[in-house]
Amino acid sequence: MSTVKNTIRPLVLAFSHVFRRVFTAKYPYEAPSRPSRCRGRIMLRIERCISCGTCEKICPNIAIKMVKLKGSDKLCPQIDFGRCMFCYFCVSYCPAEALIGTELVEISVYSKEKLIYPPEKLAEEPKWPDLLPKPKRVKLRVVGRRGAGHVEIGRE
């Protein structure tokens, strides 16, 4: 008897999932919202940087190098995001809070060299890449009987 039950029940359950909420988010048309502590591309506030070099020493992947700013003698971090693994030790240990985290993770480019961010580029505000469409922000929610899925923010 349990044989019949164990054979039929998966079939019924599998078919019942046809009527559940689709789990997939249609990235990049829908981008799941990031948590507030999301470790994305790192941003530098040049005016707060005291050129101490802590970030360079702490970086486990040797992704950070102190370089001179253009047109001045001040040393600021340059980050190679090709090597960076987003551990955020540099952000945590920065004594002047000059390095701060952002939510942007869409930093892919076609060549490795473009991933090396000099201080000037690090100081720029992160912006959504031009190649991708402007996404709808969705959030992973557990809603009702149709199960979990990505729901547009504001329409929960």
């Binding site: 599998a14 078919f15 999932h17 046809v18 559940r20 909420r21 689709v22 789990f23 997939t24 249609k26 199960g147």
Partner: peptide, 13 residues
């Protein structure tokens, strides 16, 4: 398409 719905996916879109 149907298999995708069983698996909670969209399938061809």
């Amino acid at each position: 398409k149907l298999l995708a719905r069983v698996m909670l996916r969209y399938g061809p879109l």
